[in-house]
Write a protein that binds this DNA or RNA. Sequence first.
RNA 1: GUCUUGUUAGCUCAGCUGGUAGAGCACGUCACUUUUAAUGAUGUGGCCGAUGGUUCGAAUCCAUCACAGGACACCA
Length: 507
Amino acid sequence: MVFDNKFIQLRVEKAELLKKEGFNPYSNDSKRNTTIEKYLNVNSDIEFKENKRDEKRHYILSGRIKLFRIMGKASFIQIEDESGVLQVYVARDNLPEGFYNNIFKKLIEVGDIVEVAGYPFVTGQGELSLHADELRLLTKAISPLPEKFHGVTDKEIRYRKRYLDLIMNADVRKTFKIRSKVISLTRRFFEEKGFLEVETPMMHPIAGGANAKPFVTHHNALGIDRYLRIAPELYLKRLIIGGFEAVFEINRNFRNEGMDATHNPEFTSIEFYWAYKTYKDLIEITKEYFKYLFEHLNLPVLLPYGDLEINFEKFSEIPLIESLHTIGKVPKEIVNDRDKIVEFLKSKNIQVKSDLSLGQLQGELFDEFVEERLINPTFITEYPVDISPLARRSDENPKITERFELFIAGREIANAFSELNDPVDQLGRFEAQCAAKECGDDEAHDMDIDFVEALSYGMAPTAGQGIGIDRLVMLLTNEHSIRDVLLFPAMKPIHTEDKRDESHTDI
RNA sequence: GUCUUGUUAGCUCAGCUGGUAGAGCACGUCACUUUUAAUGAUGUGGCCGAUGGUUCGAAUCCAUCACAGGACACCA
């Protein structure tokens, strides 16, 4: 049974007793007329009043009981609502005859949600409190809360029962409020710039726009498989072709890959596309975007992140090949020589597939020696074309693309480029990806002939960018696991899924 | 996927080289009308993650599994 725990049984009995006494343990008639935060602000003058109280003021507040201190004929309880914590003084003689001894002390406890009415006063210890003349149970909690001092610290419980984590840990609520603000500010920033928010499909016939393994689902009516999207890119570009000149989408992507501190199977990104612009313009708007976030979130430009301090006034820009030498300390003479790179990697005990191209090997060098050293915001530019199947070639050097990735605290935060709009080139790149797939690269792009056809109608020169919102929020909230910025991170089921699998077959 | 650490009361945690399972909080009972994790007294509470094995005897040793944390690998 779900409720066979003895502590729960006791509480269920209390709920029954309350019903017998004529009190609904789940009443639906809250009369709350202010929040705790407002109450504390409005009554901050009470300490200067005579007797440190004002019996003429009267408020009704609600919240969950977090602490319960009974001292004979009077008690202090602490209640918490979304806005804050309030101490309430509850004395026998201020309540109806018998209520304090028989109901309050016996049947109401930590975890319950109550409504209190009374006037403001300041205690001998100097805490602005509420002097209650009425106390009512709104909701009985039949499961006891975790320990009042340590709370829940077990990560497994915190992620699986996020509601408990939120009840017990005020900072967790704060983190998710910041997350919400980041998304709201992001939306506002791009709207103010004239971008149009759009929604493109989450179920794709071809999983394109990134290199990743997709989740597969099935459409019964059509009898066909669909892929949960790994990126919205190819749809957003179709909209640019259609004549929208600035679009963005903030939404979930799904990638069927491993889970760790920076990867969750579903994650949120913003992608935006801007016609008649280049990746150079994106560097500028990205700097502006960060400035906007920092101003509106009141964050210091020298942002602490773990042991690091990141300077958000110090954005720098460096081409990938150059960074290999200047930041990664890879000998200058080898970075453009395929064989020498292979030899170098071997000497460092790094295993790579034998058939990698020069561009791919340069990417390996970057991942290995440069990425983790990029602490202050750094735009790495001019990516090799072989690792950028959707980016426009540089006019000066067809081997590299007009692309950048933004790295902060050793992590990729954004990926952007001037978009490839030559349909013939795009077709060729898809074909190369397909060849790679034949050779065992199961994350290479699939051919999307419909997209190539769309391009053939002409896409204005366009720049586009994706930003990982989860990792951005991690950075801004000083969290080091993606699970701490996702309300409900993916977790393995506790019980075996045998039954589920059986029922699955007859769909 | 590999390595590593953990899983004991509702929660936070002890439990040594194997010998009848412990504390604090919470809960029950009693006392207490200005406390701040209130306090004092007293009591209840456990399939020691699961399954096997070794042993006269296992929370403890061994193996397998499950879940979680960390590191690495994979992953642009």
